[in-house]
Design a protein around this nucleic acid. Structure first.
Lengths: 286, 286
DNA sequence: GCAATTCTCTGACTAGAGTCAGAGAATGGA
DNA sequence: TCCATTCTCTGACTCTAGTCAGAGAATTGC
């Protein structure tokens, strides 16, 4: 890897942990410990402990103790979930909500302290660069996993995909027509817990894999996630022993079509009668 | 302050502390604690404890204890400075140097982990954006202080200024000619401990302040530090009851001249016979 | 209905990070 | 010379953050 790049990333790490890290440590917690504050923040309008542990990456014993201390201060209540009385749900009290908005103000304050010493033009440059850094760091955090089409995350993505299509297609889109897919596997891309992209696959005939329903969340567009899903799909198809991948698509999806072409797909005659399709592609796996 | 900007900075803080912060915490320390590792790194080729405390922001008792533990592991030696036997100087042993380069490799590794999941183009974009963020965050960390012209930092800056001039001036520059200034105050800009810019001032006649020797370190050019020094100088002049500021400058210093003009200075006839001067400026303080 | 599993909690730890109040040596200034 | 100051060290703390091993309640699968 280019050592100039590595050097710049190291410089960035250093400056950022010094400046942003120090501000966070000093101002974010307030009277409370940083961990307790973060927890307070994440609880929001009520969360079950399991998901809180997930997002914050805490040990269950530790989380319990933090909650106990917030409870003692009258900021949260923890009750059993009526649906499953093993799981418990934390909720903010009125005092907790007040505290949370104080936390909010401190976060704003930190941001303002960072912006304050700069001129307007410098602020604009900084914010633009931060947006870039943030988006690209997030790309690095995306994880792709193969799941069953019944998996809730897969269902969520496909729903989102249909919603997008309904807006995009010139002739509208009726999800019900194709809602019963033959998909065998879905690759789900997640940022942390949240699904932000997917692509489905099934094997209509031996040696041929068909790709369906590639979707990327608005917030993650333009970051190469589509290409990454395509690459991982190809790997999966190879592992299954397929010799080619095919797909059909609608003419409205121009950027997807460009992606297919630049990824080695070639347009072929129609191989099915999918109602919304205008283009059919195939890629030979070597 | 623009709330979109604040929101973006907050998003940045979150993403960066999650991604970069977590990587640092997990991989940087190695077997040693993060504090000890950072200390090891900063010692480098030998540093006195005072300056180490400054850079790392540690309590003297805590630093002492950290050094004791590194000493016990045979990584550093601490000896009295022969010049002043109260101050002690820490130096790395051979084992310490080995450990430090291992630390170096871990830092590189972290940078590579950040870059690894990206395509070449994304890497380039990330590195460019990081460089921007880093430079602008550093701007925010700059502190300006008024010191005596005898202050070592002031001397250091003026020396650096003369060195720069010797290169810039068409007809060369002999610092000795003007080495005995009448400066009364010097504003020194520092990044952490290190001086990166200055501007001097004296009062040749009642109510008139004269600006001399504005200098900004190469690494800090283009970040508006010159303008900031000028603004702070103006404030200082006002506090002293001055009604105008004047200055003379050499025609080689084009960007400085542009700065003066855009800051409200107007060219006036020569008010002195400074050998290297080609332009004279004055600004009325209202 | 019973066993395995899931979920949360408590108690008992550990290590890191840092603060604070002196003690004691060395130095500098009047 | 002597007193104030500077510099480092030690001891005695505190707090945060986190781990680990069980205990006990609720739920699920068979």
């Amino acid at each position: 890897m280019d050592s100039d790049m590595v050097a710049e990333v190291r410089r960035f790490n250093r400056t950022v942990t010094q400046r942003v890290g120090a501000l966070n440590d000093h101002y974010l917690g307030g009277d409370r410990s940083l961990g307790a504050s973060r927890l307070l923040w994440e609880i929001g309008d009520g969360r079950d402990l399991r998901s809180l542990r997930g997002t914050l990456g805490l040990d269950s014993g530790y989380l319990s103790r933090l909650l106990r201390s917030l409870e003692a201060d009258g900021l949260v209540t923890v009750e059993a979930d009526p649906a499953d009385r093993r799981v418990r749900v934390a909720r903010l009290t009125a005092a907790g909500k007040t505290e949370r908005s104080a936390l909010d103000r401190r976060s704003d304050g930190i941001a303002e302290m960072i912006l304050a010493p700069l001129t307007e033009r410098q602020r604009e440059r900084l914010v633009a660069a931060m947006a870039d850094v943030e988006r690209l760091l997030r790309v690095g955090m995306v994880e792709v996993e193969a799941v069953d089409p019944d998996h809730p995350d897969a269902r969520y993505c496909v729903q989102a995909y249909f919603k997008d299509l309904a807006v995009l297609f010139e002739d509208g889109f009726d999800g019900d027509v194709v809602l019963a897919p033959d998909m065998e596997t879905v690759l789900v891309a997640r940022l942390g817990e949240e699904p932000i992209g997917c692509v489905g696959m099934y094997e209509p005939e031996p040696g041929v894999c068909e790709m369906k329903r590639m979707w990327v969340h608005d917030s993650a567009r333009g970051l190469g996630l589509g290409r990454r899903l395509l690459v991982e799909l190809e790997t999966l198809a190879r592992q299954r022993g397929a010799t080619s991948i095919r797909l059909e698509t609608n003419r409205s999806l121009t950027s997807a079509i460009a992606l297919y072409r630049s990824s080695g797909f070639e347009e072929v005659p129609p191989f099915n009668a999918e109602p919304h399709a205008h283009h059919w592609f195939r890629k030979q796996l070597t």
